[in-house]
Design a protein around this nucleic acid. Structure first.
Length: 563
RNA sequence: GCGCCCAUAGCUCAGUUGGAUAGAGCAACGGCCUUCUAAGCCGUGUGCCGGGGGUUCGAAUCCCUCUGGGCGCACCA
């Protein structure tokens, strides 16, 4: 039952306006007492050559009132009040019967979607910046899966490139084997930073690094073994973090996976007459699109990340026949993806239009950009551990007798961090601050989880209560606002998917929690004397917990039954 | 120099694709726990929506311009 459509049809009957156009114009009034839907009559004023307020008054009289409580004319607006009783009954029954499926759909049925996200660099720390891609990608992956898409999550590991030449040079000169066993990432970071320091004094180290990478690409034994060792050590560390975040990938095909697929790409570009030489490098000229050329091979003959991304896109099309190929990679790389997508188009791949770069802002710390080269990073693991221990302290203060304190602290603490990353528009930079991120008051992850736990607590206490719900009594503004919000869950997810913007869902969940807390504080549920009303309220509570649980799960956040 | 993005309350941010009196959270102050979890709820104050021009019945939202900031512009990823 789609009320928007029903109302649009009513207006359509009385005017010459198309249904779709009406649906687009229909809006939600700024205040609930002004109605549930509003139709602005200003556009009609032109065609009907009448004042908008006259039109709305006439429509108010002539329109059919089925499904509606009343219709009001306010200035140039026609305001609709839907029939609360049938609406509430319909929505709550739907939520309670669909449960963990509530909010899903099958609009993506039969469509494959590749989502590339996280993609940390091997031998470098997994720092707070990496969570941005990881959290956004994971949320998009889950939301699309929930809408019936066949999603393929790819962690495009940065496990290839000149940086490995540098690491091999550094390894052979300065590695401390003992430290490497104990804290692999730290030690690899130390020697990587040392390389850059030393290379400033002795630029020949850079040449040496390029040579080692060339050897690696050519499959030389020593380089390959060292590379494999660093990769294994790194993956072990990364998996610790993915376990904490409860994130899994369908494919770990990183850059190295494409090392034997690059010749074919270079050949294809050449056959299509796109390859030109420029300053010793092989490039695809993109002047006609007003963007710099896409470099395919460096002057030393080694490939570059653009080549690998081209190979990866083609491989993914051949393997998954994707409907969309999504890259969750920082906004600073926007130009790079423009070059890649344009090159694919020039190669004659019409599916280049299905490739999407989902960019996001930087994670900044006290106005400084985090730089791996300078060793100036905050490890994500440290942030997550800090979040968990602060949560544990809070539990000791507020709820000492809670069972499974550690487990709750983990879910709430980590959930708080992920929630903070997904709360705002992804194009925005995150000003990183422990105190802001780990402040658990107001619009935060813990606030929403707390709301869920409150709801569950009521449901536990009311177990066994089986009176029949009387929805006609569930008619306060607070209750009806909550019902309307709950009804909009699927719409919120679809909107988040369309814009590749998880924050739309995050903010929706906050709104639901707010509306619930308002209701919770004002009306008693368990001690409500009217049994029909009590039953209806309990259903509203349960529906709220279902929406919060499903919603947070799509963001990659677990709920707790008590906190 | 060229290109992309951004500018909304003291701070951090929303603003339903051009609609009604621009909203939240934090911080500050005041109130609410012998009754369902006070990580909560209620109340108080704050705005040249960066400046200027334009389009429109109607602009925080669209166009132009200026200012201030961020990011990116070939052998790093």
């Amino acid at each position: 039952m789609n009320y928007k459509k029903i109302i649009a049809e009513k207006i359509h009957e009385k005017t010459n306006m198309g249904i779709e156009n009406i649906e687009k114009l229909l809006e939600i009034p700024p205040k609930p007492e002004m109605g549930d839907y509003a139709f602005p009559c200003f556009q009609l004023a032109k065609t009907m050559k009448k004042a908008p307020n006259l039109i709305s008054q006439e429509l108010k009289e002539s329109i059919s009132k089925d499904y509606l409580e009343k219709v009001e004319s306010m200035g140039g607006y026609l305001n609709f009040f839907i029939d609360k009783n049938s609406y509430t009954k319909h929505i709550l029954e739907m939520v309670l019967s669909q449960k963990e499926k509530y909010g899903s759909s099958d609009i993506g049925k039969g469509k494959n979607v590749v989502v590339e996200y996280s993609s940390p660099n091997i031998a470098k720390p997994f720092h707070v910046g990496h969570l941005y891609s990881t959290a956004i990608g994971n949320a998009l992956y889950k939301m699309m899966k929930f809408q019936g898409y066949n999603t393929i999550g790819v962690n495009h590991l940065g496990d290839w490139g000149t940086q490995f030449g540098k690491l091999i040079v550094a390894y052979k000169r300065w590695v401390d084997e003992e430290a490497l066993e104990k804290e692999p990432i730290n030690e690899l970071l130390r020697i990587y930073v040392k390389f850059h320091d030393e290379a400033e004094k002795d630029p020949s180290l850079e040449d040496l690094a390029r040579m080692h990478f060339k050897n690696l690409e050519d499959g030389c034994k020593e380089e390959t073994e060292l590379w494999q060792r660093m990769k294994d050590l790194s993956l072990k560390e990364f998996n610790k973090i993915y376990d904490m975040l409860n994130i899994k990938f369908d494919s770990l095909a990183g850059e190295s996976f494409y090392s034997d697929k690059m010749d074919a790409v270079v050949d294809e570009i050449e056959i299509k007459g796109l390859l030109t030489e420029s300053n010793g490098a092989l490039v695809v000229n993109l002047d006609e699109y007003n963007i710099p050329p896409c470099i395919i091979k460096k002057s030393d003959g080694a490939t570059i990340y653009a080549t690998r991304d081209l190979a990866a896109a083609i491989y993914r099309k051949n393997t998954y026949d994707f409907y969309k190929n999504i890259y969750v990679v920082g906004s600073p790389q926007a130009l790079h993806f423009k070059q890649i997508f344009t090159t694919l188009k020039l190669m004659g791949h019409e599916w280049a239009k299905d490739c999407v770069h989902v960019g996001f802002g930087l994670v900044k710390f006290a106005d400084k950009k985090l730089s791996t080269r300078k060793g100036d990073v905050i490890f994500l693991e440290d942030l997550l551990n800090e979040a968990v221990s602060r949560t544990l302290e809070l539990i000791e203060q507020k709820n000492t007798n809670l069972e499974n304190k550690e487990d709750v602290a983990k879910k709430v603490g980590i959930g708080a961090v992920v929630f903070a990353y997904l709360k705002n528009n992804r194009e925005r930079d995150i000003m990183f601050s422990f105190d802001d991120m780990l402040n658990f008051d107001g619009e935060t992850g813990p606030y929403v989880q707390y709301t869920y736990a409150r709801g569950k607590s009521i449901l536990r206490k009311a177990e066994g209560f089986t009176s029949k719900a009387d929805f006609s009594k569930l008619n306060s503004t607070e209750e009806f606002e909550l019902v309307k919000l709950i009804a909009g869950f699927n719409e919120a997810i679809l909107s988040a998917i369309n814009k590749y913007e998880p924050s739309i869902l995050t903010r929706y969940i906050i709104d639901v929690a707010k509306a619930f807390n308002k209701f919770y504080n004002q009306y008693s549920i368990i001690s409500c004397e009217d049994e029909g009303l009590k039953a209806a309220r309990l259903q509203l509570v349960e529906a709220t917990t279902i929406v919060i649980k499903n919603g947070l799960s799509l963001l990659g956040i677990d709920v707790v039954e008590k906190m």
